[in-house]
Design a protein around this nucleic acid. Structure first.
Length: 628
RNA sequence: GGGCCCAUAGCUCAGCAUGGAUAGAGUGUUGGACUUCUAAUCCAAUGGUCAAGGGAUCGAAGCCCUUUGGGCCCGCCA
């Protein structure tokens, strides 16, 4: 926590100064200063204005004088600003040394928040009946990025993907295959998940609208799916696993990986529901309705103005939300684990092992994928249902904030993009719909970006081998998608536009990746390995010190981001870091300058930057090409 | 009818949690910088009644209340 050192020093010293003035327990701020106001600022004098009956500027003057008498190593001096702020100027010789040497350690940016406690992050959880679209991608990238950040914050993260393989959407494509004559082989090399989503699913649901009598078939298939031993269920298992494999391919391609796949069909067959139902009845969290509109149902009472929620229908079957309750309790480790675990048949591209639940105990391994805390990434349209689950879990495990619904706004299509898909929206953005075939698939966006990047990279690097161009283009395409999905606040709607979202300039991943390529090139051309045994006092230019400062803020950003489950904080940090480097790059020459000691110091700085941008972009799952 | 979210520059967004200095980026438009460590870059200009109104405060883009505009959710569907 490098820059934190100077903040800590100032905080301690300020407290000393205050206690000499017989002032205690003042909750003042000490934070990195705005440009032009020194290096660190504190609002302490504002907070004392009333108590001391003096204006803030006078108080700042007083404290500043006191401060300059204290022992300080990282601060050169403090200064009272006429506004009342107290500004501090850093001892950059020492701070450079501290920040730059620490940034060379593998642990740089690591913060001890989680203390290795297990935490569950569930994301993706897409019905296995279609290809992933750009809306799913927001969920997936948020989940994956949060997982990476929590790992950096010392949590033991278990990443889960819930496979809803027995719901209505799956039933729909099964009906398509078994009743409407869709071939099991997709036409001309189409990916199977795209075929199921674009053709089978869309056209099958269309038929329902034309002929309501088909509803009967659909209901029967759904019923057969829940009974695991039926032929329909076995057939559905084959189909959904094929789709799932394709979906995972898309995820892996975007550098997203998991620890365990949980299948809904197995949760249903495990009998977890009846156990949790008994518990709910015992704890009086559900009540049986004798009359009224929900007569014959078991309901959860809504608090205040909320409506009661039916969880068991009058025919005895569980509703959608009810299926989520045992899973939520399982994730928190509140139930005896009925599952065994086996390796997923396909390996993930990184070293991470992928497991899947099974009810078959022959030769399988025991694992614990539960967590003391659980984070479920689902879009905010489900907020109401998630609140019911969260409330229940809080009653089961009486520790607050252990079950968190991490909600986010949806991705919509711009009017122009909707038009290219054949929908006229009169200039308005529009929600995507899998059922109507109104979506932009993740694979197609990736392909478009990759093609664009291949051309750009080939143009810039005529001597580059085509497989290297391919790799660069892959990394840039993935980076662009991931950055676009993470840089906005979670509660901002992202309007996806096929043209505008493919930009590679400005506040984008390629901009940041490009700074890494620049840094790599300098280090490569220097022809030697960098040392941290250099004269840091030679780094005096504003753009040099700004870069050092930004590097030093990495840990603070990680902490902020992890505490608030706010992945965009890291995206902003990466961007700020890249801007600092570009400014340094434009204003200072590193190689071929007369002062060799300065060259050494700058090389050290470039290397620190390179390591830090690699680590911070890695938190976003974005790779850092050496050339591009 | 009830609930959740959003509103800051022409456009897309930071800043709001934890009130304090001169409200910042990108993009767009206009001009400038490649014989130099890669111009996916940089520099400059342009652009703001922080939706409106009220309140508490020495002090509000930020906190509280109201209103307006926009999005979403409220089934014995999933």
């Amino acid at each position: 926590m490098t820059f934190q050192s100077i903040l800590d020093e100032i905080k301690n010293n300020l407290n000393k100064v205050l206690s000499e003035m017989s002032l205690f327990d003042i909750d003042f701020s000490v934070e990195p200063a705005k440009p032009g106001f020194g290096d660190v600022s504190s609002n302490v004098s504002y907070l004392l204005a009333k108590q001391l009956k003096k204006n803030p500027a006078q108080i700042a003057q007083l404290i500043s004088e006191g401060y300059n008498k204290t022992q300080h190593t990282l601060v050169l001096k403090s200064e009272a600003h006429s506004s009342g702020y107290l500004n501090f100027f850093a001892n950059w010789d020492r701070l450079c040394q501290l920040i730059l040497s620490e940034s060379h350690l593998d642990t740089f940016g690591f913060v001890e928040l989680g203390k290795q406690s297990p935490i569950v992050v569930e994301h993706t959880s897409v019905n296995p009946n279609k290809a992933l679209h750009i809306g799913h991608i927001r969920n997936i990238i948020i989940g994956d990025t949060v997982s990476r950040i929590l790992r950096k914050a010392d949590y033991k993260v278990n990443v889960l993907n819930y496979i809803d393989d027995s719901g209505l959407q799956v039933a729909d494509i099964i009906v398509g295959f078994t009743h409407f004559g869709f071939d099991q082989e997709p036409p001309n090399d189409k990916k199977f998940d795209h075929y199921c989503g674009d053709d089978v699913y869309v056209k099958t649901t269309q038929k329902y609208e034309e002929d309501f009598s088909l509803e009967e078939i659909r209901k029967n298939v759904l019923k057969e799916l829940e009974n695991g031993s039926s032929e329909t269920a076995k057939f559905a298992d084959i189909i959904t696993r094929k789709v799932l494999a394709n979906q995972l391919e898309t995820c892996w391609n975007l550098s997203v990986t998991y620890d365990c796949l949980n299948f809904e069909s197995q949760i249903i067959r495990s009998g977890l529901w009846s156990k949790i139902f008994e518990k709910l009845k015992e704890m009086k969290l559900v009540e049986f309705e004798n009359d009224g509109k929900n007569a014959g149902c078991w309901v959860i009472r809504g608090d205040g103005k909320e409506e009661d929620k039916v969880i068991v229908r009058s025919n005895g079957t569980a509703t959608y939300i009810a299926k989520d309750i045992p899973y939520a309790a399982w994730k928190l480790g509140l139930l005896d684990d009925p599952f065994h675990y086996e390796k997923y048949p396909i390996e993930q591209p990184n070293d991470q092992k992928l497991w899947q639940t099974t009810l078959n105990d022959s030769g399988s391994t025991e694992h614990d994928f539960t967590g003391q805390k659980v984070i479920t990434v689902i879009d905010s349209r489900q907020a109401r249902l998630q609140k019911i689950i969260t409330d229940l879990m809080t009653k089961f495990k009486s520790v607050p904030d252990t079950y968190v619904h991490l909600g986010y706004e949806s991705v919509t299509l711009s009017s122009d993009t909707a038009k290219t898909l054949g929908l006229e929206t009169e200039g308005k953005q529009t929600q995507m719909s899998g059922r109507k075939g109104l979506y932009v698939s993740a694979d197609s966006v990736y392909d478009l970006l990759k093609e664009k990047t291949i051309q750009e990279t080939a143009k810039r690097n005529p001597d580059m081998r085509s497989e290297d161009i391919e790799t660069v283009a892959h990394n840039v395409a993935v980076g662009t998608i991931r950055y676009e999905m993470i840089k906005y606040d979670l509660d901002k709607i992202i309007t996806f536009d096929l043209t505008k979202s493919l930009s590679l300039e400005g506040d984008t991943a390629p901009y940041i990746q490009y700074t890494h390529a620049r840094a790599s090139r300098i280090l490569e051309k220097s022809g030697r390995s960098t040392s941290i045994d250099v004269d840091f006092s030679l780094l005096i230019e504003k753009s040099e010190l700004d870069l050092v400062k930004t590097i030093g803020l990495f840990g603070i950003s990680v902490k902020d981001s992890a505490n608030n489950l706010s992945p965009k904080v890291i995206a902003r940090y990466c961007y700020d870091l890249a801007v600092s480097f570009n400014s340094f790059y434009e204003h200072n020459k590193v190689l071929g300058i007369e002062n060799k000691k300065l060259e050494d110091a700058r090389l050290c700085l470039v290397n620190s930057f390179k390591l830090t941008i690699e680590r911070s972009l890695d938190l976003l799952g974005i790779a850092t090409p050496d050339r591009m």
